[in-house]
Write a protein that binds this DNA or RNA. Structure first.
Length: 278
DNA sequence: GGTATTTGACCTAA
DNA sequence: TTAGGTCAAATACC
């Protein structure tokens, strides 16, 4: 836990200015355990995907799918756990606002309702990859934010109507130096009520606007070290095509794609791929 | 034709 | 009054 990067930890939206102080202000032990588990899974998955080459066989596809599924479960648990704790800390004034709004509607207002779900129980993250959080989202708005160079995008759960899931999130690009990777602030509001919100399929179905050019790389595999989510048993699968130089090249390409701006068009991603492949 | 995204209008809280 | 969150029609994409 000592080497955990606190930039990527959830922090309160209201009271704690310091992220690490906030991280420690309530009992986050269950969430911490899940984050640690998630880091381990990510490391293993990285070992599978980065040395990628040639087409996966069925066993390899199954392993990648299982790892992503477990990783997404962990992510969901972390978010749910933290949101439960933050919800318990809602200040009274926010509760009164919420109750007041409900009672106002019961008084018989017939106007079109623009419900606001922002009452303080939010979590936010800094991340270079704001879309891969294990849930499926649909974009429903975009706004220019005052004193900010970049627009804020608004997403709701894909299953909002089907399962009355009121979870939403916002994504906003941070201002950054050209020497640093692009970072995004992702804020989550509300809790997922949907059951089909995790995606067991390969990761490219999570984000509908993800550039397609980036996805072709997920079809390949090289040397992999995988852990079964059920048994924690390790097994090594060798692939004769994964040379060290090739692995290094693919890793570089993936990092470039991961740090590309959210609004990168397909041709921009293709340009990264073609330039990087030389 | 169905589904997702974009975008201007509308609404609410501060 | 203004900034920001949400809606929904228009548009784009597959």
């Amino acid at each position: 836990m000592d080497n955990l990067d606190t930039r990527y930890l959830p922090h309160c939206s209201s009271t704690c200015a310091d992220k690490f102080e906030c991280f420690a202000c309530v009992d986050h032990q269950p969430a911490i355990n899940e984050i640690v588990k998630m880091q381990s899974l990510v490391a293993q998955l990285r070992a599978i995907v980065l040395p990628a080459c040639e087409i996966m066989n069925d066993l390899q596809l199954e392993l990648v799918s299982q790892l992503f599924g477990t990783l997404q479960d962990c992510t969901s648990k972390v978010i749910s756990e933290l949101q439960i704790q933050y919800s318990a800390q809602l200040i009274d004034v926010d509760r009164r606002k919420l109750v007041g709004n409900i009672s106002d509607c019961k008084k018989g207002c017939t106007k079109k309702k623009y419900k606001r779900s922002r009452y303080g129980d939010s979590t936010s993250y800094m991340t270079p990859v704001p879309h891969y959080d294990g849930h499926q989202w649909r974009k429903y708005g975009q706004k220019i934010i005052r004193n900010s160079k970049h627009q804020r995008s608004y997403y709701r759960c894909t299953y909002k109507h089907e399962q009355n899931c009121m979870a939403t999130k916002t994504v906003q690009q941070q201002e950054h130096n050209t020497t640093e990777p692009v970072m995004y602030t992702v804020a989550y509001y509300g809790r997922h009520a949907c059951k089909a919100n995790t995606c067991p399929a390969p990761p490219h179905v999570i984000e509908t606007s993800t550039p397609q050019g980036a996805m072709s790389l997920h079809r390949t595999i090289g040397t992999q070290e995988a852990v079964s989510p059920d048994t924690d048993s390790h097994k090594i699968l060798e692939n004769e095509h994964a040379t060290p130089q090739w692995t290094e090249d693919v890793q570089g390409l993936l990092e470039k794609i991961a740090f590309a701006p959210l609004d990168s068009d397909i041709w921009e991603i293709d340009a990264i791929l073609s330039l990087g492949a030389r």
